[in-house]
């Protein structure tokens, strides 16, 4: 089964943080990627630019309205995601415990193709 791990984090502009903080965050993710690789677990993942760069479309009657900002305005946003393979939710939880955790990690099973 495939699971998406949605990484919720305090909104951060990674272009504005100090080099040290950036290196630390990158190192944490490198460590997680190493953890996955060491176990031969297939995965993919991406980091997202901050929510101030987000654009949201909403239906309005027959129209679609384009608006600035994320779908929900919160203090935390989805900062990135991984897609992993796991046989059960317990396995997915075990993997997710190793994700560098910001505010929380949401585990979502992905529909089988």
């Amino acid at each position: 089964m495939k699971y998406m791990l949605l990484l919720h984090e305090p909104d951060t502009d990674w272009t504005a943080v100090g080099q040290e903080e950036l290196d630390k965050a990158l190192a944490e993710h490198a460590e997680f990627v190493q953890y996955l690789a060491a176990r031969g677990r297939p995965f993919s993942g991406e980091a997202l630019r901050p929510s101030c760069t987000a654009t949201t479309l909403r239906p309005k009657g027959d129209d679609i309205i384009v608006t600035d900002g994320p779908f929900v305005e919160l203090k935390e946003h989805i900062g990135g995601f991984y897609v992993i393979e796991a046989d059960t939710l317990d396995e997915a939880i075990e993997v997710a415990k190793h994700v560098p955790i910001g505010s929380g990690v949401e585990i979502r099973p992905i529909w089988d193709a």
Partner: peptide, 10 residues
Amino acid sequence: RSAGIPFHVP
């Protein structure tokens, strides 16, 4: 079923 909660002893 859909989240894959397993039928096993943890």
